[in-house]
């Protein structure tokens, strides 16, 4: 694809991320036989939160609470620049994986620093689950690097036939990354209320939502690039992923925390075996 088109897409990414979230919600609602919100509802949410008052407790007013989300945004911008090849260097694939982890860690630090009990429990859950799903992502990416010999993410071509098992593992870990049932225990509202977002309000909450949507969209982009490369069919793959994840979200209940962590760890071990034994 032409580099100028890639740059236009890069600029449009925040809008596309919000739009993908709206499409996901619409699909999810239709699976439940509901009308659902309009596709541009996430834009309305962001605009509304921009104008809302910030209410915080005295305990949560500290530098980590405020800076965590800004650091996450900076990491996300670097992630997108690497993904679209604006920043390109050898082994950027490895840096890319580190940055995905760093975004999540920055958000967790901010939630921890809020000293809210719900944020605290949600952050602990997210950290434990992260140990599982980030290992799956890392092992799958290592396998893809070893098969293709490509060390830069912007140069990855379609791996659907050469590394199908790794792609399945990436799709599976997507359930935890995107907080899709049955692996959405870190955001289980009936157990831990608003979870990590409990103490965020106003513009800070807006920033949190933006970080979450951008992170999710980046994961969709990563999987679609590994499945089919970067070409004209990418939007179709993105829509297919949204459809599949919305369907799974609508057709499954939630595992409890211990069981979901256990299953993710088992999957991480299996993805490690995949590197050494199967190699697909």
């Amino acid at each position: 694809m032409n580099i100028s088109i890639e740059l236009i897409i890069l600029v449009l990414c925040p809008f596309l991320a919000l739009l993908s979230s709206g499409v996901f919600r619409k699909l999810f609602a239709r699976f439940q036989n509901r009308k659902g919100p309009p596709v541009i509802q996430p834009f309305y949410d962001i605009i509304k939160l921009w104008g809302k008052e910030r209410i915080e407790s005295d305990e949560s007013r500290n530098i980590i609470f405020y800076s965590g989300l800004f650091i996450a945004i900076i990491f996300l911008i670097i992630l997108y620049l690497i993904f679209f090849g604006v920043i390109k260097f050898e082994y950027d694939f490895i840096v890319f994986i580190y940055l995905i982890v760093s975004v999540e860690v920055a958000v967790i630090c901010s939630a921890f620093a809020s000293r809210n009990i719900f944020s605290y429990v949600a952050s602990m859950r997210e950290l434990v689950l992260m140990l599982g799903y980030e290992l799956i992502i890392a092992f799958s990416v290592i396998n893809i690097i070893s098969i293709s010999g490509v060390l830069s993410i912007s140069s990855v071509q379609s791996m659907i036939f050469s590394a199908p098992v790794s792609i399945i593992f990436l799709l599976f870990s997507g359930l935890a990354v995107l907080r899709i049932t049955p692996y959405d225990t870190a955001s289980a509202s009936t157990e831990i209320s608003s979870g990590m977002a409990s103490e965020f309000s106003g513009k800070i909450l807006m920033l949190y939502l933006l970080v979450e949507k951008l992170k999710d969209f980046m994961y969709y982009l990563l999987i679609s690039r590994i499945i089919i490369g970067w070409n004209i069919y990418t939007p179709l793959i993105l829509l297919g992923l949204l459809f599949a994840y919305a369907l799974i979200n609508a057709s499954s209940a939630r595992y409890n925390f211990m069981l979901s962590a256990k299953k993710l760890f088992i999957a991480a071990v299996l993805s490690l075996i995949n590197i050494g034994v199967i190699g697909l």
Binding site: Q32, N33, R34, P182, D184, T190, A250, A253
Partner: peptide, 16 residues
Amino acid sequence: LFHDIGYETLFMYFWR
């Protein structure tokens, strides 16, 4: 009950 375990679809269906 199904809302409590995150199965929103069954929640909607039973309420329908």
